[in-house]
Amino acid sequence: MIGFLLTRLFSLAAVALGVVSLVFLLLHLVPGDPVEVMLGESATPADRGELRRSLGLDQPIAVQWARYLGKLSHGQLGESLHSREPIVELVTGRVRATAQLGAAALVVSIAIGLPLGVGAALRDGRRLDRAALALTALAMSIPSFWLGPMLILLFSITLGWLPVSGRAEAGAIVLPALTLGIPLAAALTRMVRASMLQVLSEDYLRTARAKGLPPARVTVQHALRNAALPIMTVLGLQLGGVLAGAIITETIFQWPGLGQLTIESIQRRDYPVVQACVLIISLTYVVVNAATDMLCGLLDPRVRMA
């Protein structure tokens, strides 16, 4: 078991290094010169050379890469070109806000997707199943830039139950969490349904029924535990996608998260911040997937002993 976790942690570190390096390289491939952005058109070549030297941009790319890694390992992300604040400080609060939103969306999706998916599978082909399939098809095809405003229109403007935007008021998280969570819930419903249908036809479920176990125990202990594995793997991938999707949702609801910061920084051409945001989003994706991997290992003895 320990060996399994160590192996996974090792491969996580390797992938993280790859991601960091790729982000670093990509920024160097992007057209445009940060020095020019910082100093503007009017700067003299001497000024530019000076700044380039002080930023270390005159060094070979390998050296720059090593330095960048060195700084990262000390938790330094550099400073914003726009506000001159250290990026670490700029980003910390934003990460917290996005994590909060992501967690809330995950709660929404599991609360809807798990029971609906299980119910649909148990009633394969009957009314509940067909309704679930139709609803999820609809939910998955609604874009968040339409769903968000519609939710605001209904719950904030017409009914006046919830705040329109921001993060300060109580209940402000509900609408963005729904906007982000509903498509995820739809995808989860379908995954749970498909995975359960597969498991329900397995021989060991027949064994469980032949033991005289009540249906609830057969469904949860025998079916769902086995169905959980593929669900979690895909859910991990989906969650990464959701964090990327948060950019739109955060913009609609003025949610002060990482996505919003990314958009603002792109508009301001604040490259170091963009780089930091991309890095954090990518690393989150990697970490979430590694975590699901390890969780699968915990749940399935065959995975952890392989």
Binding site: E202, D203, Y204, R206, T207, A208, R209, A210, K211, G212, L213, P214, Q221, H222, R225, N226, L299, D300, P301, R302
Partner: peptide
């Protein structure tokens, strides 16, 4: 019927490979 299954009539199947739950 659930009190009959496993208690009065028990069953074993052809494929022991797939008849046992792999995660328990």
């Amino acid at each position: 019927m659930r009190d009959v299954r496993g208690r009065r009539i028990a069953m074993i199947f052809q494929e022991p490979q797939t008849a046992l739950n792999p995660v328990l």
